[in-house]
């Protein structure tokens, strides 16, 4: 039983869950492109739009949980860009009693990147949480994606939670042998070395066994393949795709012009 929250599909009965994965994928791609076009303020508006979406998808706060992983990246971004941004012009703040200056341009640049990351992360997460991996692969296969590539996509999505659980077990096993994983960062990094062996060996062993198990179930059989899970492309999917693309292009063009 995992103690950390896994980043994987959460079953809910919602409109967003029922959409065709391709619809959601198209919307996600639109959002990612927009994130790159828009400035930090507009990106924050885009970020705020996740609220109604997460409400509709009945996931509420689950979508926001991964943000805590981003905080470290933000901290690094702001400190490095604030201090060393190459096109620095305007000093924003001088740390008292030192010559260390924080530059306005660097902070703006860091804000831009952070807002982009934030948007991509939450929307990407919304996609993963509302889309069953099997449905995604099915939908992609209908677009003539090779079966094997489909499996690679699927297994990648599966492998993350399974590795997460394995890491937990391995950490627990070593803690039970007196391994102290607290203390400063170097001490902690050194403490994690014993975990790598079992993890790599375990992963390779699992991969080899999975290959054989797949072959034993006719994975490479040379015939048309059918699937238990069915994805339907409804009229509303088509409408949503058209609407999303039109809105995104308009917003993109408008923000590019102004």
């Amino acid at each position: 039983m995992p103690r950390t929250i896994l980043i994987s599909y959460i079953e809910r009965d919602s409109l967003i869950h029922k959409l065709n994965p391709l619809t959601k994928l198209t919307a996600l791609i639109c959002v990612i492109i927009l994130a790159f076009i828009l400035g930090p303020v507009n990106n924050l508006i885009l970020f705020a739009l996740i609220l109604p979406l997460s409400y509709i998808s009945k996931l509420t706060w689950d979508v926001f949980k991964p943000i805590r992983y981003l905080l470290i990246i933000f901290a690094i971004l702001f400190s490095i860009q604030g201090l060393f941004y190459p096109f620095r012009l305007t000093p924003l703040y001088t740390i008292p009693f030192t010559n260390i200056i924080i530059w306005k341009e660097g902070i703006i640049y860091a804000a831009e990147i952070s807002a982009r990351l934030l948007v991509m992360m939450v929307y990407g997460f919304l996609f993963v949480l509302t889309t069953h991996p099997g449905d995604l692969v099915n939908a992609l296969r209908k677009l003539k994606m090779p079966y094997k590539v489909g499996y690679i996509v699927l297994s990648t999505l599966h492998v993350i939670p399974s590795i997460q659980m394995q890491v937990e077990t391995i950490i627990d096993a070593q803690k039970s042998r007196g391994l102290d994983v607290s203390g400063n960062i170097i001490k902690r990094l050194r403490a994690y070395v014993p975990l790598l062996g079992p993890l790599f060996i375990g992963s390779v062993q699992q991969a080899v066994e999975r290959t054989m198990a797949l072959e034993a179930r006719a994975f490479s059989a040379d015939c048309e393949k059918t699937s238990f899970r069915q994805t339907v492309f409804r009229k509303r999917d088509r409408n949503i795709i058209i609407a999303t693309v039109i809105i995104s292009v308009t917003v993109g063009v408008l923000s590019w012009i102004y």
């Binding site: 803690k175 039970s176 042998r177 102290d180 079992p198």
Partner: peptide
């Protein structure tokens, strides 16, 4: 108490040896 400390009193052998053997 953390596990590292408690491990002096309570030793726990996990089910799957591959989860702990690394040397």
């Amino acid at each position: 108490e953390n596990t590292a400390k408690l491990s002096k009193i309570v030793g726990y052998v996990f089910q799957n040896p591959d989860d702990q053997i690394f040397n």
